[in-house]
Amino acid sequence: MNGLHILSELLLMPLIAFVVGLMMVLMMRKISARIQRRIGPPFFQPIYDIVKLYGKDTQISHGLIHDIGIIMAVGGYIGAEILLPVPGMEGIADKGGIITLSYFLMIPSLGMALGVGQCANPNGSIGISRALTSMLAYDVPFIIVVFGAAWHYQSTSLVGMIEYQQMNSWGIVEMPFLATAGLFALQGMLGKQPFEIYIAPAEIATGPMVEMSGKYMGGLFVMQTFQLYTAGVLYASLFLGGGESWLSLLPKAFLVVAIPMSIAFMFPRYKTEDVIRILWKWPVMLALIGLAFIL
């Protein structure tokens, strides 16, 4: 691994994540439109949105922490993308591992929480309080799934896990229960209906996003692309054998993201306590059964 390779990974991995993430956002919006029997946005709509937001003439900031919050939100995900191994680019990713990555993914949320905090808007604070509560809810099944996967592959390195799956069989075949529980947790992690209480536009005015204008909102849109990409690729690496090449990885990642989206737009949302209740009951149960099989 020479310097040039490292440099290319540092630059290319977030860039690819961004482009793929844009397409995932488009897919999400198309799915929602189709389910609601609409046509949906044009192909370049995610780009238009982001360019427009960054091209705003005026915007407001509530202070330095507001700015830093957005930097942390975007920057944390850029870092996380580099720790996520993809075909041909797994040199740096090997330095991390699944535990590091799952904690890395909390950094953007923390950054956003700080930024929203300084906005001094109660809607935002309520949103963060709910977001952290639902993080507590979905992380319990997620962490059991991570444990199961790491135990099954006898490795905490994602690269090692992918190698194992490509030599043997996919994780989803060997650990169907854990894979299902993981998908369940993914729904909460992406904050999609029925677990989107912390956005709740009509109730708390999109919660954390309430005071975000211009490039602040643009940063959150960029963050969303990364979030979808991370979810798709991480799940594909854990259970669907990663990818020998981009051609085999991307369909898997898109498929993974499409499942929660298709479920999402058919549901209203649960109350916060019900989010915890449901996520601590069914996926945890599934995950524990799955764990009992592999231990």
Partner: peptide
């Protein structure tokens, strides 16, 4: 906004707070 006329195909979507809106 909904399926009859579908504003989203024109790139228009509802937002909630004045900060986000055009």
């Amino acid at each position: 906004m909904t399926s009859r006329f579908d504003m989203e195909r024109l790139g228009i979507q509802p937002m909630v707070t004045p900060r986000q809106a055009d």
